[in-house]
Design a protein around this nucleic acid. Structure first.
Lengths: 278, 278
DNA sequence: CGTGGCGTTGACGTTCATCAACAGAGGTGG
DNA sequence: CCACCTCTGTTGATGAACGTCAACGCCACG
């Protein structure tokens, strides 16, 4: 396949992101100062590794620390009593597993790795400290969590009102834009290490049916897959197929008004710091 | 139907809730002081009314103020390009419409009324003020928003991996528990002003199919419906049918550890207030 | 007295699930 | 280095769950 060779070539030219993926993502919300970026880098510094196909957090556990995913892919999922599985979310670099859930008494779902991953554990204390002292980063993290919620809502729309072709097209588009937001694409090409079974468990379909639809997409020249590298050859067509509108990802940033508001908080905070002799 | 008469009788004995529904809900997270409750009552005091079947907020608008739903029922929904509709969430008394979304540039879905509603508009300022000064209420609101997110995830599980009977059973159970949490049930009986079409648009089904399943449930003696009053006659059976586990609603409250943490913040805050001469 | 929304029921069609079998890739132990 | 095995992808045959289309009754409302 000439096409495959071609997009591998493209992919190999993807520059390694210079900033950490969380920073990259948050920059879609609002500009961050050098100090903010430094702080985020420190936050992302500690490192822990997990192999593929293990649970980082299991259903029923008490949520403890928070993890920042730095590399690899993971998922939130739940097993049904009859052994079937529903994947709720894919986690990609720059995503936080459970910035919030530590408020809850016990996990209602599991988080498992899909590929080997590198994560930065973040303690509840440092996160709460951040919230108390850095309004702009807090707002950005909050925004990011709103974005995640919007993605959940979009999944509901997809599962409720799109057919198999629409669901798959929509999911490929969402993954493309999310990867773009953290600098992990080259044009419409990115690495997608999912099995067809995992896609099926995400979209409420069977692996067999996912296979048939993907075959169809390939034959129509909409996508190409090779060595887990996915090319969306006709993004427009795919988006049309799904009725996909990337608005729900809210990549356009905050309104000027909201941004000003958090800037003013930031200034107030700096004032506090000075008066406290910091 | 003797049964219908019976459950109407039951329903009429439901006492009017003394506390406002938001307070009732938040008490599931942690105890609140008298001052906290007073503050929540003030928050809920302003009033605005909307008739049934109108949009309170429409897709594409800039999210402005936040609303507390005090009475009636509303929904978040989205219209698809082909005219079909997906309902994402039902809002019942005690729910906040978009505590968070004001961080986003534009709404990616609409909020519409199902029945006439009474809401309390809350300004961004008073909400932010609360977050700055009342750690315990803030934590409770945050918890409530986590709970909403958990409900979204559960919907995804439902749409992805349950059949029509399971979905409907699950939705009835969820609505029962949510109403219970704000004191709007009497045993397994509560008022549910939804049409079958609305249920269908929530669960990714057609009104026709919802009708057939409900008929079946009625014939099996699982439920009874009369004048929009719903009785879950065999909750156990319904929950078994859906594989329903109310754990995801997190009604058990916060862990002792989390609660202590926010109590300590509260104390620190009171210290600040005193030293600032308030 | 019409009219429109909602619930209800029947006949029929389509999408997707289920079951089954096999091929290729990659990993592991002998 | 090869045999073996498991996981993933692939394809075909069959069936069930749910959607679509259509019609009618009921009730609230103007």
């Amino acid at each position: 396949m000439a096409r495959a060779a071609e997009h591998r070539a493209l992919y190999s030219s993807v520059p390694l992101p210079t900033a950490n993926p969380l920073t990259r993502k948050l920059l879609h919300f609002a500009p961050l100062s050098g100090a903010d970026k430094l702080l985020l880098d420190e936050l992302a510094d500690p490192e822990e590794r997990f192999p593929a196909n293990v649970d980082i957090v299991a259903e029923g556990m008490v949520p403890r620390s928070v993890f920042l995913l730095k590399e690899g892919m993971a998922m939130r999922y739940r097993n049904m009593p009859d052994g079937r599985r529903q994947i709720m979310t894919f986690l990609i670099p720059g995503d936080l597993c459970d910035m919030h859930v530590f408020l809850l008494k016990e996990m209602d779902h599991s988080i498992g790795t899909i590929t080997p991953v590198r994560v930065a554990p973040i303690s509840r204390e440092s996160l709460m400290g951040l919230f108390g002292s850095r309004p702009r980063i807090s707002a950005a993290l909050w925004w990011s969590s709103m974005q995640e919620e919007a993605m959940l809502r979009e999944r509901i729309v997809s599962l409720g009102r799109r057919d198999a072709r629409g669901r798959i097209a929509y999911m490929l588009c969402e993954l493309l834009w999310r990867h773009t937001a953290v600098g992990l694409t080259d044009g419409e090409v990115f690495r997608l290490p999912l099995t067809q079974t995992e896609l099926a468990d995400t979209l409420g379909l069977t692996p067999v049916h996912v296979n048939r639809v993907l075959k169809d997409f390939r034959q129509q020249g909409l996508i190409a897959i090779n060595q887990r590298i996915l090319s969306l050859l006709k993004v427009e067509a795919l988006q049309a197929l799904a009725g996909f509108n990337k608005g729900y990802l809210h990549l356009g940033g905050a309104s000027a008004e909201v941004r000003r508001y958090f800037d003013s908080l930031e200034d107030a905070q700096r004032g506090n710091d000075r008066s406290a002799g910091t």
